[in-house]
Simulated scan of single mutants.
Amino acid sequence: MPETTPRADGAAAPLIELDHASQVFHVKGKDIPAVSDVSLSVDAGEVLCLVGESGSGKTTAARLAAGLASPTGGAVRYRGKDLSTMTRAERREYRRDVQYIHQDPYASLNPIRSIQSTLSIPLRRHGMAKGQTEVDATVDELLTRVDLTPPESYKAKFPHQLSGGQRQRVSVARGLTLSPKLLIADESTSMLDVSIRVGLLNMLTRLRREQNVGFIYITHDLALAKYFGWEGRTAVMYLGKIVEAGPTPQVINNPQHPYTKALLDAVPEPDPELTQQKKAGGGLRSAEVPDLSALPAGCAFEPRCPLAQDRCRTERPVLETSPGLAGHDVSCMVVTDPRTRAASTPQAGGPP
């Protein structure tokens, strides 16, 4: 796949694209819509942060982008080519170009392989290094890049001989072995100390800027999305759908959806006065998340939304541009419809 397949309008296709992708799991006779009609894209050198609570569907969406699962609806394309129609050679190149950094290094690292073996096998298999000397030098460089120094102290060890943070750094190093075009990082810094976390994010930022690597960065922490994705875009997911998406500065500084505002309110503040202001501003009507197998008839966020109106119980919102904010999409009728926005008043406390 040496060239990017152009789109119908002549523009270059995104590096990765989910086009109305859905993923439904069938569990005990019930349909569980983990991802529903999600459309997103990432260009070379761009970072897209997927943000949401646990169970929001962000990891499932990332697995679709990584080809680890096939969508039950819609399509996933790499450089304009549908993954389901790729030839064997195209699939091999796609596998090399798109790398996934798993959240749990305890499960993602093979316990019977040394760190040297874990990092050298993909290098040999894809011809990224020739000869033992070059393989060893590349492994040393990878370990150094993720602050596992000196490399000689780690190469002969096995995963159980490392701390959780060290294992996570090995997972990141493995994701970098094949010089990927797209890195999908699933909470990849969650097990690291703050100082190491910042250093690793800075390293990934340099990789994006210097080598034009695209990123899908998954996190439940909007503070991390702000730090790593400030120059990119952020998409907020709730119960399998994108409820807000736009440039990260706009989403962070001018959130439109009440769910995004709730996530921002959950970010710890060092200033007690700011914490008190957040509490005074009101919160969600309920902490209980609806069951994916029995979603509300209207807006899925309605049972928890402080702005909910009668129509929200029966009508489903669509993702559309927020008034006056180009490139900033939101799925909320109260925000996008001037009639309901004018009539809206926040509801504190329990349901009406």
Rank of each mutant, 00 (worst) to 15 (best):
H26T: 14
P2Y: 14
Y94H: 09
S190E: 09
L50R: 04
L119E: 00
V35R: 03
L284M: 12
L207T: 05
P255K: 04
Q276M: 14
R96P: 00
E231P: 01
H102S: 14
Y227E: 10
L142D: 02
A287Q: 09
P317N: 07
M86N: 06
S293M: 14
M128S: 12
P150G: 07
E17P: 01
L143A: 00
P180K: 09
A235L: 06
Y154N: 00
S108L: 07
I196S: 06
T234M: 03
V236W: 03
T85D: 14
G57P: 00
I196F: 08
G298H: 07
D136Q: 13
I121P: 00
R197S: 08
Q309P: 03
E3L: 14
E320K: 13
K30M: 14
T85C: 11
D43M: 00
D337C: 06
G327L: 05
P303K: 01
H160I: 11
A62K: 01
G327P: 05
Q277L: 15
E187A: 10
L50S: 08
G175S: 13
V27F: 08
Q116V: 01
H328Q: 11
G283V: 01
V27M: 09
T340K: 07
L201G: 07
L224G: 02
P255D: 05
D136K: 12
R77P: 01
S22P: 05
N212T: 09
A287G: 08
Y227W: 09
R7L: 15
R339H: 15
W230V: 12
T340C: 12
C299W: 00
A61T: 08
V38D: 03
R311E: 13
T219A: 10
C332Q: 01
V139E: 07
S179Q: 15
P247K: 10
I16E: 02
A89F: 03
I242Y: 02
M191I: 11
V251E: 04
L224Q: 05
I216C: 05
V35I: 08
D291G: 07
D37L: 02
I184H: 02
T60L: 02
K81Y: 08
T72C: 13
I184Y: 00
G52H: 04
R208Q: 14
E46K: 02
T138F: 03
R7P: 02
G74H: 05
